[in-house]
Design a protein around this nucleic acid. Structure first.
Length: 493
RNA sequence: GACAAGGUGGCUGAAUGGUUAAGGCGACGGAUUGCAAAUCCGUUAUCUAUGAGUUCGAAUCUCAUCCUUGUCUCCA
């Protein structure tokens, strides 16, 4: 019997606005698509948060014995710079600025993206397709949409006819917008003569002579529109209908709305059963933006090289910090929050790392099976990682009590506790175990051990002036001595 | 301006109709220590932006007001 038979997941579906029991189209199999990054610059930390949320979803579904195909694309063709102007694409623009080939930009930032995600201990998706590798598929979809009467060609470009679509379908079904409101709110655009209506969006754009990224098509040498790649790649690898589609809240409109319209216009089917949207990351209570300086790059968290943070943080600490908030809540990225999470993270790790040293008793004062189900309940409830972490701390407290002698545990329960806490902490949350102690190099450890020995002798001789001098001066260079009954260890900061 | 999500303790962040509103950090008290730090244990919101309403009962539903974030235009 597979685990998914005993655990019922409920997912908040953006389409319905409610939590729904998750039932995949094919029992035992899950198809999941997440909109990946546009690789024209370093990956945005908020984007990392979104992908982290879905990394945990992926990990949990796999843990429940589902066979998951997780597709996360790389957008290497660039979205249109501005739908209203010549349709310059972000990657081509960046390439010209830096005088390099477009694919060089793509290569550089794809590598950066993968490096950052590796640091954060992400699982690679099952398929990571690129937009430029699926131009043919995108052209085929455009043909179908034209054949079905929902798109029109003007001067070598093809546009999706929103008004025609809305006559028989519902444009705005995901973002709860009404076409009338959109019309009312659309500003007058100048030089916008090709489209029948301002709400229409491009499926294919004819390339200007100077445009570097271009492909032949029945309509012109050009490039695909901004929303098409996700429809093409999700359909190709997951089918006309699949289970979960995820992305950042900012993509809900128009990107995901257009994906639905494109798929409906092609296959006359709603493409996705469960739409999931991760909320935004802000910093110090404000929007994170390069232009205001309220900004941090992911690798600056690891190096500490950013004015908004006071020290370097382990990737797992940052990961723990983000998972302490629910994916549908706005998360405020602050140095104080990181500091608090760092302490909590090490507290959890310390508890896990002493499990093997615990004394076994003939009875348990803790109901491990009930606690284990609480862990599942947390994740089953729309992947509620903050509740899961709180539950893990229940176990951490119990572990410390056993160590203290104020609680007891049997051999069998200890086995179950250890296995469960490690599964949820490392396999599902994707945290990486670390021991704070003896984190220095071998040579440093040897040198500090000598000082610890000297200090111990001084203390035995009640030469506290000397012992405190050793302790304080080590602290000044960032080496913290930790006394306990068992002896003295040290940590470096 | 329109639409969407949200405003919970010193900070962070869960809980969406029903006993004492999770957890982490901090603070305070205790254990430990020669004294500290580290570690461990315990305590810590008569109350959920503001005002009104629905209900036997609301943080949770409704309305209004204020504020924040997002989208509507490139931005994760």
């Amino acid at each position: 019997m597979s685990l998914f038979n005993t655990q019922n997941i409920r997912i908040y579906n953006s389409l319905s606005g409610e939590k729904e029991v998750f039932k995949p189209l094919n029992e035992g199999y899950v198809g999941m698509y997440v909109c990946g990054p546009t690789v024209y610059s370093n990956v945005h930390l908020g984007n990392v948060r979104t992908f982290m949320s879905f990394d945990v979803v992926f990990r949990y579904l796999k843990h429940l014995d589902y066979k998951v195909r997780y597709v996360r694309n790389i957008t290497d063709a660039g979205h249109l710079e501005n739908d209203a102007d010549e349709g310059e694409d972000r990657i081509a623009k960046k390439a010209r600025l830096e005088s390099i080939e477009p694919m060089e930009v793509v290569q550089r930032y794809t590598v950066d993206f993968h490096n950052i995600l590796n640091e954060f201990n992400f699982l690679p998706p099952s398929i990571e397709p690129t937009a430029t590798g699926h131009i043919i598929e995108q052209i085929e979809i455009i043909k179908s949409i034209i054949d079905n009467g929902f798109a029109y060609e003007v001067n070598g470009s093809v546009y999706f006819d929103i008004h025609k679509y809305n006559a028989s379908k519902e444009y705005g079904i995901l973002s709860k917008r009404k076409l009338e409101d959109l019309i009312h709110n659309t500003r007058a655009l100048d030089g916008q003569s090709d489209k029948k209506n301002p709400q229409d969006f491009a499926l294919w754009k004819k390339a200007e002579p100077q445009h570097i990224m271009r492909w032949p098509s029945p309509w012109s040498d050009g490039f695909p529109g901004w929303h098409l790649e996700c429809t093409a790649m999700s359909t190709k690898y997951l089918g006309e209908q699949f289970d979960i589609h995820g992305g950042g809240m900012d993509l809900k409109f128009p990107h995901h709305e257009c994906e639905i319209a494109q798929a409906e216009a092609t296959n006359n089917k709603s493409p996705v059963n469960y739409w999931m949207h991760a909320n935004m990351l802000i910093m110090n209570g404000k929007k994170m933006a390069k232009s205001t300086g309220n900004f941090i790059l992911p690798n600056e968290i690891f190096s500490g090289d950013n004015p908004h943070i006071t020290k370097a943080y382990l990737p797992s600490v940052a990961r723990f910090f983000m998972l302490q908030a629910h994916y549908r809540s706005i998360l405020d990225f602050t140095n104080n929050g990181l500091l608090a999470s760092e302490k909590g993270f090490f507290r959890l790790m310390d508890a896990i790392n002493i499990i093997d040293d615990l004394k076994i008793s003939s009875t348990s004062s803790f109901d491990v099976n009930t606690w284990k189900q609480k862990c599942y309940d947390a994740m089953n409830d729309d992947f509620n990682t903050p509740i899961l972490i709180a539950t893990l701390f229940d176990a951490a407290k119990f572990i410390n009590q056993v160590k203290d002698g104020s609680a007891t545990i049997t051999k069998e329960d200890l086995e179950l506790l250890k296995q469960t806490i490690e599964t949820f902490t490392f396999d599902i949350l994707g945290l990486v175990n670390v021991s704070k102690e003896n984190s220095g190099t071998d040579k440093l450890s040897g040198a500090v051990e000598i000082l610890i020995k000297l200090r111990k002798e001084a203390r035995l001789n009640k030469n506290f002036a000397l012992s405190d001098k050793i302790r304080d001066e080590l602290a000044e260079v960032g080496i913290q001595l930790n006394d306990s009954r068992e002896g003295t260890t040290f940590t470096t900061s």
